[in-house]
Design a protein around this nucleic acid. Structure first.
Length: 578
RNA sequence: GCACCCGUAGCUCAGCUGGAUAGAGUACCUGACUACGAAUCAGGUGGUCGCAUGUUCGAAUCAUGCCGGGUGCACCA
């Protein structure tokens, strides 16, 4: 099964090749830039005409002739310097819409080459509480996972949490000093942020404490039972906190998706050994390093990837190399996506390059850093609150729900309290997620409460409102015992435009599977909702005659189904009413 | 010093592999609720796409240089 766009691309490319004789000619089919130019346009003729030194309009006319009789297209015309404007066959559109109503799964066309894809995302540091900076990686990763699964790929989630390293020595030391008072310890741990701060303060202020902390790091890495028990206790507490946040955000990460840094600990000596055997390892200033020609540091000096520190300890590059090998060999990944802050792009370039050089990944396995931008404060500098702290993710979400609660109470005072609470939590959380997902992930973005918590315009409530409106209409007709039919006729321009947009959902999801930009999905859903609103304003459903009503109802229903699927791919659950 | 990212309307941002007259939201101004739900809709004001060269039939998009901002660059993750 091909999308409309793919079908057009195929037909036009074939026609173009036939006409011009150039084997690698491309139709270059895109959405028409303006409504009067049709539904799609093909731009490929002009490039070919230049090569052949022919008149592009003549060439385009020959391609247009070849389209005669094609069932997808009603009309194709040459325009401007050599564009081909394509007007889709309205009956074909209605037919496809009806097919989607009969079988909802037809809205998404699965990939023709299903792959095993490992997605590394969220990966918080367990030493501290999750703050707003963790939002992006977590929800972008979650959305990508949902999209890839919808396309029929086998997706393996990997939550590469930071549960290992020097700071845990400090935390265990602090824990042990409190452990004779079990109650105090529990309540202290409940506030992870405070706990970390207290431990850090002592680490900086008390030399004996710092020495103790360092000794615990060594003991931990050597597998000392007492240390491990304390460490496990802390990790469990910290994970519980993460899971609370995941539950609030509907993030589908489970304990079984956990592959923490500690998981790779026993593998690290083998990594060193393997690199050494490949002849990639060299000693520099006491550390075991890999030097690759393509990386230069300050003053143009060769830049190492440090595998093992002078004191024998390992760094995160070593762990990442072990993880790459595990993902390629044990998990059988065809593709590994690292949804990680853009600031780590050099790190991943290096790790990927070393992994390739050392044959830690199969040739066919693709490694991609799905980078996202840094969160900035309103002053354009990396984000901090006035007091210099981070905003806890939990606080942001609670605030969003509280604001949504006020709004529901104002808009819909008659609803029951339980219903208000459900709406408030859905709208509040969805708004926060949407405001982040709707921005291009590669650019830095400014954190500000008001835009995160806004409920008007291009926001989650707009999409949820469109969905709730449709459900409202469907409910009314249910009372009249009229079942929504599957008889879409596209008469009004608003009906047609809506149907075209719905059928383009498959094209969009396909593209998302390749480039992983969820903001494109947000934009699509916003436009879909906008087209529905226009349809809703100008094409009455309940008041029209029976046939028209059936058709419009079916179209509205199909819009709702598409919206629901799309929202689901963003990790947002729609509401029956709001 | 080197590398990567960014500079589009007052503000927040779209703009997919170069395509026709650069788009949304917000803010501001006008209109539309005895309602298929106004968390909405219709319309208006608002832009030398950082600057300059170049490639091209065509550049916000590609190349080079400059200006401005961010990030990273040896034992933290």
């Amino acid at each position: 099964m091909l999308t409309i766009k793919e079908s057009l691309e195929k037909v036009i490319t074939e026609a173009l090749i036939e006409v011009c004789g150039i084997k690698d000619a491309k139709g270059q089919v895109i959405y028409a830039s303006r409504p009067e130019f049709g539904d799609y346009q093909a731009n490929g003729v002009m490039a070919v005409a230049r090569q052949l030194r022919q008149n592009p309009r003549d060439l385009a006319a020959q391609v247009v002739d070849k389209l005669a009789g094609n069932t997808l297209v009603t009309r194709a015309e040459v325009a401007g310097p050599g564009f081909i404007n394509i007007f889709l066959n309205t009956e074909m559109l209605a037919g496809r819409a009806n097919a989607c109503l009969a079988d909802h799964t037809a809205l998404i066309i699965p990939s023709s080459h299903p792959q095993t894809i490992v997605v590394d995302y969220s990966s918080p540091n367990l030493a501290k509480e999750m703050h707003v900076g963790h939002l992006r990686g977590t929800i972008i990763g979650d959305s990508i996972v949902r999209i890839l699964e919808a396309l029929g790929h086998c997706v393996i989630r990997q939550n590469h949490v930071g549960d290992w390293g020097t700071q845990f020595g400090m935390l265990i030391a602090h824990m042990n000093s409190l452990s004779n008072d079990e109650k105090a310890l529990s309540s202290n741990l409940a506030d992870l942020e405070g706990f970390y701060r207290a431990a850090k303060q002592r680490f900086d202020a008390e030399p004996e404490f710092a020495d103790l902390a360092r000794s615990y790091v060594v003991k931990l890495q050597q597998g000392d039972a007492d240390c491990l028990a304390a460490w496990q206790r802390f990790i469990d507490e910290s994970l519980r906190h993460c899971e609370e946040v995941y539950a609030l955000l509907s993030i589908g990460l489970k304990r079984s998706d956990l592959r923490a840094e500690s998981f790779y600990n026993k593998e690290l000596p083998n990594i060193v050994k393997a690199l050494s055997e490949k002849g990639l390892l060299s000693e520099s200033e006491g550390a075991q390093c890999v030097f690759l020609d393509e990386f230069k540091g300050k003053d143009g000096n060769p830049l190492p990837v440090i595998i093992q520190k002078r004191d024998g300890g390992y760094l995160y590059a070593s762990t990442d190399l072990a993880a790459i090998r595990y993902r390629s060999d044990n998990l059988g990944a065809d593709r590994v996506l690292y949804v990680v802050d853009a600031r780590q792009s050099l790190h991943f370039q290096q790790v990927f390059a070393v992994a390739r050089a050392a044959d830690f990944v199969r040739q066919s396995c693709k490694l991609e850093h799905i980078a996202y931008g840094t969160m900035m404060g309103e002053d354009g500098k990396p984000f901090k609150t006035r007091s210099g702290d981070t905003v806890k993710l939990r606080e942001l979400l609670d605030e969003a729900v509280a604001r949504a609660r006020d709004l529901v109470a104002e808009k819909n005072p008659d609803l029951s309290d339980t219903e208000k609470a459900l709406i408030a939590s859905t709208v509040g959380i969805a708004s926060v997620k949407y405001s982040d997902l709707s921005k291009n992930r590669t650019s830095d973005y400014v954190f500000d409460w008001s835009s995160m918590l806004s409920f008007e315009g291009n926001t989650a409530p707009y999409l949820l409102y469109a969905y709730a409106r449709i459900q409202s209409v469907l409910r009314r007709l249910e009372e009249e015992s009229v079942t929504p039919g599957e008889h879409v006729y596209l008469v009004q321009p608003e009906e047609r435009a809506l149907a075209v947009k719905i059928l383009q959902f498959a094209e969009l999801v396909q593209q998302l599977g390749d480039d992983c930009f969820p903001n494109q999905l947000c934009l699509y859903l916003y436009e879909l909702s906008g087209l529905f609103m226009k349809f809703y304003e100008s094409c009455p459903i309940l008041k029209s005659d029976s046939e028209t009503r059936k058709s419009r109802l079916a179209l509205a229903n199909l819009t709702a189904i598409t919206l629901k699927k799309g929202l689901n791919l963003l990790g947002i659950e729609p509401l029956q009413r709001m």
